[in-house]
Amino acid sequence: MTFVETLASEATRYVIVIVMVAGLYTIIARGNLIKKLVGLSLFQSSVYLLYLLPAKIFGGTAPILDDRFEVYSNPLPHVLILTAIVVGIGTLALGLALAIRIKAAYGTIEESEILARDAARAEGKERGA
């Protein structure tokens, strides 16, 4: 096994895990709604890699029925991830839209401030009643 191949088979797994954990960490650790979405996107991207990297075959071509080619990459993971990317974009778009609406309604996109404003309003209501 050449160095490149070893690297490809091992290192890719580490890359997947690192991206995945970095994404998750960002979601949990950041209070900014936009940064959370960035983390979410990273997290999802790691899944794309999880599916795609093993599907890559060195020297393989796209699966075209032709006598000249004998080694193909498996097309299924690519198709799956195409779908997943679409889903991911949808999610991200919706998340960003929500962030915009939240900004308009609360005047902030920091989670802690949003919670504080809700708490303050609830308290005000109690006192008003």
Binding site: M20, K36, V47, R101, I102
Partner: peptide, 20 residues
Amino acid sequence: LVAAYQYLIVGTIGATFYVI
């Protein structure tokens, strides 16, 4: 809005876990 956002984050994590 906040409830939807929070659910979006959690729900997407859940779905991504599933797809992993």
